[in-house]
Design a protein around this nucleic acid. Structure first.
Lengths: 239, 239
DNA sequence: CTGGATCCATGATGATACTG
DNA sequence: CAGTATCATCATGGATCCAG
């Protein structure tokens, strides 16, 4: 007669409890898109193409109630900036493992009409460089895509870091300027890249550009490359 | 007109693609419960308390179509044994991170009527011992709960392993016999444990039992205790 | 008994339009 | 900019039934 938690699994299992918080549709994508920093409602609507405002509102309220997301509302300002709480930011390892799994096992080619967001592509690249321990010393690459923020992907030789380019004062080793689709084509191309791909402009010292091109050869991973001995039984089937 | 992938997110992002495969309700719980080995439909119905046969069937078919689960149907045998494919087994890191996140951040106390399955509790224990690098040398503990399989939790000093006890020939250092609820109470109790808890019987050499009790002191983790391990992954999220 | 299928109710999500 | 309102659709839950 009591139905206190209709959406709960009711399992004595912290994994099930975790899924009660982040298992709803769109929930982890909200966390993904807030991982690089706070965003407004409409920023999220843009990143998460296809979500309806009703669903996004519902997700944000749920995540807020669960303590993963917090809104910053300042009086006298229309915008609401949503940011991750520490608990939300702590989902990073989960997102990383899911993304790595997707890179390993999702064979489906992207559809031509899929909206491309540089931060998604760049996060995949950053994570792979980190996981593969690609070491090219201390580098700083800036990616500039018209219509979005600039991004800086950098490494100190040990850790790879991706962030929105706030302090443009630091001089990058390489600056990549590209349209969204050109960036996606360039980074996800198989095999060696043509330095002069259409829609891409790469600026910097010749040696730094060579380092950049060499480093990103690891991306995207071949299905067998990221973790050996995976006889892929994946039927890329649509249903 | 055409709506080829109605449940797809349509994002150019492998993380979103991954969620299209494992983001449906119950999907990751199916994977969780197949992680220790193949199970029949009714075994899964038992482990995943609360799922309806219709939903479980749907999940199994979807996971099968996506190449994560495969059914073993042998002619002349009634049972269907569902097992993970390599791609499904490769979700282990995702499940682990989700479980760790749940142990860190889900404060809700279990409800008294939640069905308890030893393998869920023991998986949490095994994962924590592994993550915390608890080293008590070469040990082999058997957990015996009436009404379920026996489980063996063992370590070679480096790696912790949990499996269903198939080869009962190997002699355990410690044998824990308990009811489901007593096991859950005992393992998830805060602070030092009483060796003579009601419903629990611990057998073995006194030294081995002391080792066991000492090792499991790390469980369950305090919210702050587990955090330090993987904060190497880009701690700064603010811009 | 296992491994489902069927019917129905309901809640979650999607599409579209509109508002403070 | 940040949502609401309304309506339609789909996925899930509850209960029951059925075939090998």
């Amino acid at each position: 007669m009591n139905d206190p938690e209709p959406r709960s699994y009711g399992h004595f299992c912290k994994l099930a409890k975790a899924l009660e918080h982040v298992g709803d549709r769109w929930a982890l994508l909200v966390v993904r898109d807030l991982m690089l920093g706070p965003k407004r409602f409409t920023d999220l609507m843009d990143c998460m193409a296809g979500v309806t405002p009703k669903t996004l509102t519902r997700r944000l309220r749920d995540l807020e109630a669960d303590g993963l997301v917090a809104p910053d509302r300042e009086p006298g300002r229309r915008e609401v900036w949503y940011r991750l709480t520490p608990a939300g930011r702590d989902l990073q390892p989960v997102l990383d493992e899911l993304l790595l799994w997707g890179m390993r096992h999702v064979a489906e080619q992207p559809r031509p009409d899929e909206p491309i967001h540089p931060e998604h592509v760049l996060h995949a690249l950053q994570l792979l460089l980190q996981r593969e321990s690609v070491d090219v010393g201390h580098v700083r690459w800036v990616v500039r895509v018209p219509g979005t923020d600039d991004y800086v992907l950098s490494s100190d030789g040990t850790t790879w870091d991706l962030r929105i380019d706030a302090d443009s004062k630091a001089i990058p080793d390489v600056t990549i300027t590209a349209t969204r689709s050109a960036l996606a084509r360039f980074l996800t191309a198989q095999g060696p890249r043509d330095r002069h791909t259409e829609g891409i402009e790469i600026a910097g010292k010749a040696s730094a550009i060579r380092t950049f091109l060499k480093a990103i050869e690891a991306f995207p991973p071949s299905a067998t490359g990221l973790r050996a001995a995976h006889t892929t039984e994946l039927a890329g089937g649509s249903r």
